[in-house]
């Protein structure tokens, strides 16, 4: 099962089949999520209408962590088993994860101003998210820093794995330190502490963000596979020209 998709050619055939389904699902989920979040759900009794920012802020933050975890696992698989697709998946995930982290920071800032009275505070949750953003940027920069793509992916994979220590720090930062940020209210012991009218648009948007990630991931992996073929052909033509 694991090795079936290790072959890039087989992956491309698989991607061609599922991509239209993921695309349709993403559009549908965003339509339902936006309808529920902006029109069908009530305002929060304390936060008023600002609670609607949660439907984009929380999924962005979830995906920022999800993408980093996926990227770190892919980097580990690429380093240990030299799995050809794992390396491409990590490389394709990094810009998407960085975008989600950026969105979590910006939407959080827009939510923080009316609720906390500040665009930014240097507390544990916000600072560790900013560190995550720089880890993504560092991974991408290191990946492109070498003439030999193999060395670039090896060095950046090690950075991604070392940086993974930040993921549990982000998750538990609201429990370990005093912070303005509220603690976990969906993924916690004893079940979610949010009313269904607000939880359902949040979950739909969460799934929409996930399928969006898979959609863009397929496109970006196809791009990497194609670019590798171009590179291989160019090298073959160059070596033929020298003879």
């Amino acid at each position: 099962m694991f090795h079936r998709f290790a072959n890039p050619a087989r992956f491309l055939r698989f991607a061609a089949v599922i991509q239209p389904w993921i695309a349709g699902l993403t559009v549908l989920l965003f339509a339902v999520g936006l309808y529920l979040g902006l029109l069908a759900s009530p305002a929060d009794y304390q936060q008023g209408e600002t609670v609607r920012m949660m439907y984009v802020h929380v999924p962005s933050a979830w995906m920022a962590l999800f993408c980093y975890t996926g990227m770190a696992i892919s980097c580990g698989v690429a380093l240990i088993w030299k799995h050809p697709l794992a390396d491409l998946a990590a490389k394709a995930t990094a810009p998407v994860g960085a975008s989600f982290t950026f969105l979590a920071l910006v939407t959080g800032s827009l939510w923080g101003k009316p609720m906390w009275g500040a665009w930014w505070v240097w507390d544990a949750r916000l600072t560790s998210m900013l560190v995550l953003f720089f880890l993504y940027l560092g991974y991408m920069a290191l990946n492109n820093a070498f003439d030999d793509p193999g060395r670039g992916s090896k060095a950046s994979s090690i950075l991604a794995l070392v940086g993974f220590v930040n993921v549990p720090i982000i998750k538990f930062s609201v429990d370990w330190w005093n912070t303005l940020h509220q603690p976990a209210s969906v993924v916690k012991m004893g079940g979610p502490a949010i009313h269904a009218s607000i939880l359902s648009p949040l979950l739909v948007m969460g799934v929409a963000f996930t399928t969006y990630y898979l959609w863009v991931l397929l496109i970006r992996i196809r791009r990497e596979v194609t670019a590798n073929k171009v590179r291989a052909l160019q090298m073959r033509q160059a070596s033929r020209g020298e003879q």
């Binding site: 209408e49 920012m53 984009v56 969105l103 910006v106 827009l110």
Partner: peptide
């Protein structure tokens, strides 16, 4: 107007 918070809510959706 979003209960007076429109200039926070809409930019958040816009940037996303």
């Amino acid at each position: 107007d979003m209960g007076g918070y429109g200039h926070f809510v809409w930019p958040a959706y816009g940037v996303v």
